[in-house]
């Protein structure tokens, strides 16, 4: 595609090509957006699990402090 020579194309053809490419680009963008939104909806469907995760915050703190000390020992 990079090496393609468009110099032989007429202005009209070029405009048509741009339009078509733009359409494909829009469709691809829409598809990407839809997939992202679907993924978000999927995450929301697991809200109960996230509620559970949020409840174990003190064990998170303990693990985190252990990691910090391990990192400090490694740095020495």
């Amino acid at each position: 595609m990079e090496n393609e020579d468009f110099s032989s194309l007429s202005k009209k053809k070029l405009k048509k090509l741009i339009r078509e490419t733009q359409d494909v680009l829009d469709q691809l963008k829409a598809e990407l957006k839809m997939r992202k939104l679907d993924k978000r909806h999927e995450e929301i469907d697991h809200l109960e699990d996230h509620f559970e995760d949020a409840a174990h915050n003190l064990s998170n703190l303990k693990t985190f402090i252990q990691k910090v000390f391990a990192e400090m020992r490694k740095d020495k």
């Binding site: 995760d53 949020a54 174990h56 915050n57 998170n60 693990t63 985190f64 990691k67």
Partner: peptide
């Protein structure tokens, strides 16, 4: 502080 502590769960 609560959600900050929750975020520490992703430390790995």
């Amino acid at each position: 502080i609560t959600n900050t502590i929750v975020s520490l769960g992703h430390i790995n």
